[in-house]
């Protein structure tokens, strides 16, 4: 038998090659894509769906069994309960909530004061301090500052509650009474102070690590040149170091804004949004309260999901603004490796 070798047209070969290249690329990206889809896109879509229903303890049932699907569900033996599709009514209720303005103000206050004072401000100060002292001492200091981050949240907050506890208890009272300060219930007197400090002390360690490694990677020659040029340490920090760590600064600002928007566990454990009505209640904590912890045991999952979904939208809007304002595209360099 004679083998027949047929020449394939060039464009077919080229098309096949480009198909193979994109398949290869997809194969490499698929684990991440799968994870992002499963743990981000699917939950967001579920959240959006639940926020459009009246799902609660009273109406408990499968939230997909609404409208015409209800009969199908029942014939299959799936519990439909009293779940109804309610359109945007959860959102109307949210925006007309009596406490909506207060919670919004609380959230903005909490996010921006913790961010500026601690997660970026204190982080920068700590990074500058620990890179200007003896290297090992700086390393040790940073390691100690990281401890609260690896302490379980509940224990960390219990310690703060003991610090700020009411008289005759409270570590703060023990220290301040001898110097003539009237003992008091510090946590009730200044709840915001403790909310911001507890979050900030832990939050600052992230920026501290990023900033100190950025500062240490600045070539020593720049610092020496600035010294010879006549700069004091403060002038070097202001005119050389800060401009050279601009990108880490912007990254930490962006990242921490988003994580502060979503964080609520310390506030939940410390004040649970109080004292009093919504004194320290922030957006993500409201979502939690509505959905999972109400006074009468009636968990309003649908309504809570609406709060959650608005927070997702706020987060996306912030991300877009940061990406635009800080021009993150310029950070992303073309890979040095040629096409696959």
């Amino acid at each position: 038998m004679e083998a027949v070798v047929r020449e394939q047209p060039v464009e077919v070969v080229a098309r096949r090659r480009s198909l193979r290249v994109s398949l290869e690329a997809l194969t490499f990206m698929s684990p991440t894509m799968l994870l992002v889809t499963l743990f981000f896109f699917v939950p967001v879509l579920l959240l959006l769906w639940i926020s459009l229903t009246n799902l609660s303890s009273n109406t408990f049932g499968n939230p997909l069994c609404v409208g015409g699907v209800r009969d199908v569900c029942e014939s299959l033996g799936i519990r439909a309960g009293g779940v109804e599709f309610v359109g945007l009514s959860n959102y109307r209720r949210l925006f007309s909530d009596r406490f909506f303005p207060k919670i919004l103000r609380n959230t903005l206050f909490y996010v921006f004061s913790t961010l500026t004072l601690f997660n970026v401000g204190l982080a920068l100060v700590l990074a500058l301090l620990t890179t200007h002292i003896e290297r090992r001492a700086g390393f040790l200091f940073r390691a100690i500052w990281l401890l609260p981050r690896i302490t379980p949240s509940v224990i960390y907050i219990m310690m703060w509650k003991r610090i700020a506890a009411d008289a005759p208890f409270g570590i703060l009272n023990q220290f301040l009474t001898p110097v003539g300060v009237e003992p008091r219930f510090w946590l009730r007197e200044a709840p915001w102070l403790f909310v911001i400090v507890t979050n900030g002390f832990v939050g600052a360690s992230f920026g501290m690590l990023i900033f100190s490694s950025a500062i240490e990677s600045i070539p020593r020659d720049y610092i020496m040149a600035a010294k010879v040029d006549g700069a004091t340490t403060l002038q070097i920090i202001r005119t050389i170091i800060i401009p050279l760590i601009k990108w880490p600064l912007l990254f930490v600002t962006t990242y921490q804004t988003l994580s502060l928007l979503a964080s609520f566990e310390y506030i939940l454990l410390l004040t649970n949004g109080g004292p009093g009505l919504y004194r320290t209640e922030v957006w993500s904590l409201t979502a939690y309260h509505r959905a999972l912890q109400t006074y009468f045991g009636n968990n309003q999952w649908g309504y809570g999901a609406a709060w959650g979904f608005v927070l997702v939208v706020i987060g996306i809007i912030f991300s877009i603004i940061y990406l635009r304002v800080f021009r993150f595209n310029e950070l992303v360099q073309e890979p040095k490796i040629d096409a696959l």
């Binding site: 070539p219 020659d221 720049y222 020496m224 040149a225 600035a226 050389i240 050279l244 601009k246």
Partner: peptide, 9 residues
């Protein structure tokens, strides 16, 4: 300096 140490910003 050998690296010139010109401030890049």
């Amino acid at each position: 300096f050998q690296s010139y140490a010109l401030y890049p910003h």
